[in-house]
Structure formats: structure tokens, C-alpha cells
Design a protein around this nucleic acid. Structure first.
Length: 209
DNA sequence: GCACCGATCGCCT
DNA sequence: GGCGATCGGTGCT
């Protein structure tokens, strides 16, 4: 395991951080000490206040997205579609609501527990390794990330953080428009703000790579 | 009040 | 590969 990312690492803007996070390792430590982790292979940058797809568009602020306004290195975890959680790394300075959505991981530590966490009673077929963390809500389910971790300082504490990993060469990276934000207006929906390690089998959506 | 979601799954072609 | 159902909080009108 590499060194934990510190405040300075989160001081850059969201597009730069989104690229930088590829290859880094997201770590979730449970209260019993169990370590769940995975290498980040897909990210998206959100650029409020101008970005219509951002929850902080036009500096919108509420109890839901309050942690987007916190210091770089804060976790922003939100609940959506009535059943899913998604996790962002907040960046830049307090009051600047920039964030990077973590969209997919290559599982590293705790595969067995991830498998159990991802196997609900509704599911018919077993979860393949490549589907454990291949989506923003899947990885939250696998790593047991929910609203209780919203606002967590990832530069401190022992529940959630990001470690430096093997750098990913530009040759392995593709940049595409973001997923699922077609209604955000053409200008922002089409911007290349999604970073993908395109040769990884663990990415969420292959279309567009 | 009500439409809308930064998504996922099972089932269908 | 695409499509509809799912579920509930959020933010408009």
C-alpha cells in the first residue's frame, strides 16, 4: 500500500484530480479492522457552479450536498434512485463545490466480503469479479459506503481514504463524455470529463471507449 | 403535490 | 445490446 493522499493532493481542480486518481487505491476500513479496497479505474469530474450536471450547479446548497462545500479531501456520499449510494472526492478549497465521482474499481482487498455485500436476495446469478465494483453504486455497496460516511475527512480518520498506487500511463487512458447526464444541456453533457483505464475489465460502461 | 434523478438488475431481443 | 421496473429523497412548481 502506498502513502495516503493528503490535503495538497486534493487541492487541484476536479478534471486534474479525476485523471490523477486513476491507479490510486480507495480504501474502506470497517470498525472490526477489515480492509476493503480497490484500484480506481474510472472517474468523472464535476465543475460547479457552471456545470449543470453538478449537484452544486449555480452554487446550489442544501443538507444533501453540504459536504461539497467542505475542504478538499472530504467525501461527498449521496443517495439516489431510492436505493443507491454514490461517492465523490471533494477537491479545491472550502466554498468551491468541485468533486470527482468514483465510478469503478478493480477490487484488491476483501473480495469475499464484497461478494457477500453485493449478493442481495433478489439476485439470481452469482456476481462476477468484474461486476463487483463496475459502477458508482456497485462500489459503494461492495465497500459498505453510505450516507454515514458523507463528510468524512479522507486525509484523516480510519474509515475511508485514498492511497497512491501505480501511476497509469496516458496510453491506457481514454477521456469521454460523462455517463447518464444527457439532460444537463448539450454544452455540459458532451464535455469530455470522464476518465477511464480503457483496457481494464472493471470499468462500468464500455460504450464510447 | 409531483416529476425527476451522477443507477442497477433481470429479462428480452 | 436495449428496456422497463425498481425505490425514496430532493427540489422544483
Amino acid at each position: 500500500m502506498g502513502p495516503r493522499l493528503g490535503r495538497r493532493d486534493y487541492s487541484s481542480d476536479s478534471p486534474a484530480l479525476a485523471r490523477c486518481l486513476l491507479g490510486c487505491v480507495l480504501v474502506r476500513a470497517l470498525s472490526d479492522g477489515t480492509r476493503l479496497s480497490g484500484r480506481i479505474v474510472e472517474t468523472e469530474a464535476y465543475c460547479a457552479p457552471e456545470d449543470r450536471a453538478s449537484h452544486a450547479y449555480n452554487m446550489h446548497r442544501s443538507t444533501r450536498n453540504e459536504s461539497m462545500y467542505a475542504a478538499g479531501g472530504t467525501a461527498y456520499v449521496y443517495f439516489t434512485y431510492g436505493m443507491h449510494h454514490c461517492m465523490n472526492a471533494v477537491c479545491k478549497d472550502p466554498g468551491e463545490p468541485r468533486a470527482v465521482l468514483i465510478r469503478a474499481l478493480e477490487p484488491i482487498d476483501g473480495l469475499d466480503l464484497m461478494l457477500r455485500s453485493r449478493s442481495g436476495p433478489r439476485r439470481r446469478s452469482p456476481v462476477r469479479d468484474r461486476d463487483l465494483c463496475s459502477g458508482p453504486a456497485k462500489l459503494c455497496q461492495a465497500l459498505q459506503i453510505d450516507r454515514s460516511l458523507d463528510g468524512a475527512d479522507m486525509t484523516l480518520g480510519d474509515t475511508l481514504w485514498i492511497e497512491r498506487g501505480e501511476p497509469i500511463d496516458d496510453a491506457r487512458v481514454r477521456v469521454t463524455p460523462r455517463i447518464g447526464i444527457d439532460s444537463a444541456g448539450e454544452a455540459w453533457a458532451g464535455k469530455p470529463l470522464r476518465w477511464v483505464v480503457f483496457d481494464s475489465p472493471h470499468v462500468s460502461v464500455r460504450k464510447g471507449l
